[in-house]
Design a protein around this nucleic acid. Sequence first.
DNA 1: CTCGGATATGTTATGATATAACATCTATTC
DNA 2: GAATAGATGTTATATCATAACATATCCGAG
Lengths: 141, 141
Amino acid sequence: MPRAAAVPHDFPDPHHDHAVCGAAAMAEADHVCRKRNARLTAFRRRVLEAIWADHAPIGAYDILARLNAHGERNAPMAVYRALEFLMENGLVHRLSSLNAYIGCRHAGRAHTGQFLICTRCNSVAELTSDAVHNSVERAAK
Amino acid sequence: MPRAAAVPHDFPDPHHDHAVCGAAAMAEADHVCRKRNARLTAFRRRVLEAIWADHAPIGAYDILARLNAHGERNAPMAVYRALEFLMENGLVHRLSSLNAYIGCRHAGRAHTGQFLICTRCNSVAELTSDAVHNSVERAAK
DNA sequence: CTCGGATATGTTATGATATAACATCTATTC
DNA sequence: GAATAGATGTTATATCATAACATATCCGAG
């Protein structure tokens, strides 16, 4: 099983080799989908690749623009459907406060997530802190 | 200074007297704005009242519908501008995941907020847990 | 293999949320 | 009471997301 050595848990090192990082994420996605009997089709794969093209969160229409950069005519619906699939399978998270999407850095591992979003550069760190979960439990009685 | 006895910190008691609760919030808003030299104009006040009309988060266009229920013709812009003001002054929070807004239950007191949002009924509890803040500090190095 | 159902994608239209840009009004200060 | 800053009015449009229905593809049962 491909491990996520190139997919760390904190803010991405600005000097890391992102090609490697993205490739690792794609491999992990393949693995997760095979395990879950989920169809990572060519189109969905391309959407995920577009998301992993950078560590920054990316909007649905920006993904679309990337896919359509060379004359293709995909519709927004297609992207949103792919995103739905990717989120269902834990490969992508939606950042509501940014209306944007980001590749999950813990795909394939159970996790409850929090995100730290830099308000200057929109860099994102995905956390897995139990403290919040505990607060939730407590408040929910 | 009006204290927030009727504005508790957890999920609102379904049996509380919300008229009192809303009135307390409005009084607190008056106080905060006076202290900050911020102008809680008639229109902004009405928007805040619409938000406090219920404990549920409310969308901008739902606020608008409320204001326009009797033939008025306010524009979306007006509501968004009022919301901007109310948020700047800590009277209202935006719940990005719902595209909705809710009255702050700690107005006038310094706080870092988290929200618990019931996925069934959209009931919201506003927390003030330091655990998250600490995680942030740690991860941000 | 081929039929049939399930899944995925294509296509068009529209809904829902939010902001830009500029005009006008109102309040406050001097 | 004129200047100025702040607030509101108005129109248009940007941005994000989904509904509804048609078509294509995959895949297992027979």
